[in-house]
Amino acid sequence: MMQKVFTRPRTLKDVPTHYCPGCTHGIVHRLVAEAIDELNVFDRTIGVAPVGCSVFAYNYFDCDMYEASHGRAPAVATGIKRVLPDRVVFTYQGDGDLAAIGTGEVVHAAARGEKITVIFINNAIYAMTGGQMAPTTLIGQKTTTTPYGRDRELNGSPVKICEMLGVLDGAAYIARVSVHNPANVVKAKKAIKRAFEVQMAGHGFTLVEVLSACPTNWGLAPDEALRWLADNMVPYYPLGEYKAPEEI
């Protein structure tokens, strides 16, 4: 007897994505979908995706979806969750989106302890708009708007979101993970599932930052991009749980 051991999660649609070869957005979509499937909440999950490379996430996730304006997904999710407190609500945001234009929204959603899960894709760049410097771009990193490398004097230092949000009382689960190799993908999956569980247990705001690769805008081949992430991003953005409830 043959047995199916690997299949497309129910929460993902059977459609090709528009992501570039080597892009890790697809991996993270899958992890989120698997978590939703495993928790058996597909039917009562609502996703919110603002602009960024993942703006078409609503075409890939098969649950109810909202498209949000740049940076405002946590506010949109707040509106949804306040009306439908028994639903599972997640946002899927880039680093330009969450850590620059939408800083206010994510900080206050966390401070209020909104029972939502934020999936935060840190690829150290504004990918969709052509590879400009993001708030998370590393010192010295070349982008289309830092052609000589990010200069601390001119541009300041990269923003560490988990460290920032971890100090807020409303935040219940805050973790940083990476998807540059299989071992880390497995850990990322665990964290994402945990975040959903903490949301469902009503503990408060949850966020998982995922260090991600953008080979296209980094100007690297897919394998080089994953190596660059491991060698440069992981040291600056330490992985791990920054906040977690004692038990759920």
Partner: peptide, 26 residues
């Protein structure tokens, strides 16, 4: 009902967007 004070009017109108999308009179 729910009265919620937001962090800005930018957030406010987006909360309205979410609540209206979820089917509420808002």
């Amino acid at each position: 009902g729910v009265y919620l004070q937001a962090e800005s009017e930018v957030a406010t109108i987006n909360m309205v967007y979410g609540a209206a999308g979820a089917g509420a009179r808002v």
